[in-house]
Nucleic acid binder design. Structure first.
Lengths: 220, 220
DNA sequence: GGGTGTCTCCCCCGCTCGGGGGAGGCTCGT
DNA sequence: ACGAGCCTCCCCCGAGCGGGGGAGACACCC
């Protein structure tokens, strides 16, 4: 049976584009559309889509609120794929925190869009999109050069968080990181939580994967 | 017949601890102790232990030198298990390059210590730090090509374990892996435990790190 | 036939992890 | 002086994770 998708975006053009791209696939079926997050709940209840592709920025109810609402009120909720125009949109991270399963850039190529829908439908999370890559690339070797430090300041992760992430990628537990940094485990937990949240990772394993996938750390 | 072990550490306390832990096992016997690497060679010649548990940092001759010396001058040399306080101690990698068969953290739990001794005694390597690289390089892209499959057969990981590790590197939880493979979570736990054991990893995060570091999976 | 290895599933148990809160002190820029 | 951001530490709590056992079914090889 095909993957069923509900489109939620205030721009009809975007909806049409998504529909065209997705309907071109034999195994994907667009079963409905909505122009605002406020209309999502009843539609989800009625259509029971596998995936909801939802814009973050919408007039009445934004994608974050809508995501929370769906996950809170619907049992066996659909997978939620957040659509956004800009990478590093702070809304994206909020949406992921709210329980979204992945996000999608409007300017992504059709093949990537299709891929994203299939992935979340299968239950995998799209946590490590291209944006993380660019973001984390700024950290570079990130040892002591001033440019990297400056980048750290304006980027998502704080210096401390980046340091904690680095230790996570070396396989250290929270207690070990605490000992290494000479702080309490509670402090480490705070930083780890911040890292997970900012990377859209569910646990430290996914964060480490993101670190490798983004170039934050490199094998070898 | 029991596994015979020679302890080499400059701290008597550590030796006592190791002895206590290991002697508690019916199949492990501590046959001697030394306080420095310089004393190892004659002891190995006389006692012919199966395993030498050796500290890296010692006053006169460190564990690396001692490892090289033993492997160079003794025929049918014992397995060498490097003991260290810190992970990512550069000495550890050097020791493994020098020919050590595994490494052991001083803060490891007794069960882990026992496990490590048994593993190296059986000829298996505790691979997590460095040498996974060579082993797992054989898996390559490892999709369907016959050579990779053949490698899987003779290598440490079974096909199922390799598949589970692959899913672990995609950030899936045990429950998600179980759903994907259409088996019970208990089954997945068994495979995950086997993977952790074979890779010498303490948790799934370290296993994923090993997978990246070894080339089992590649970023991007 | 018997052994070996793999895959499957089960029990119990303890611990780490991560989320949910909150809070105080610090530096910095305005 | 004030707020913003960061680092630090604290509480409670549930869930997932990992260890240590064991066990049955099956295929393969000697």
């Amino acid at each position: 049976m095909p993957v069923t998708v509900l489109l939620v975006d205030d721009e009809p053009l975007v909806r049409a584009g998504l529909r065209a791209v997705l309907e071109a696939q034999p195994d994907i079926e667009v079963v409905g559309e909505a122009a605002d997050g406020a209309a999502v709940i009843p539609l989800v209840r009625r259509l029971r889509p596998d995936v909801v592709a939802m814009d973050v920025r919408m007039p009445l109810m934004d994608g974050i609120e809508a995501t929370r609402a769906v996950l809170r009120t619907v049992d066996r909720p659909p997978k939620i794929l957040v659509i956004t125009t800009f990478e590093n949109d702070e809304y994206v991270y909020e949406a992921l925190r709210a329980g979204a399963d992945g996000f999608l850039l409007k300017r992504a190529r059709p093949a990537e869009i299709v891929h994203a829908v299939r992935l979340v439908a299968e239950g995998e999370s799209l946590l490590f999109p291209a944006s993380v890559r660019q973001l984390a690339a700024e950290y570079g070797a990130g040892d002591g050069n001033p440019a990297a430090r400056a980048a750290l300041r304006r980027a998502a992760l704080t210096e401390r968080e980046a340091e904690v992430l680095r230790l996570m990628t070396r396989g250290l537990s929270n207690a070990e990181i605490a000992a290494r940094l000479v702080v309490g485990t509670e402090t480490v937990k705070s930083h780890v939580s911040a890292v997970l949240s900012k990377l859209g990772a569910r646990d430290r394993t996914q964060a480490v994967i993101a670190a490798y996938e983004s170039g934050f750390v490199a094998p070898g």
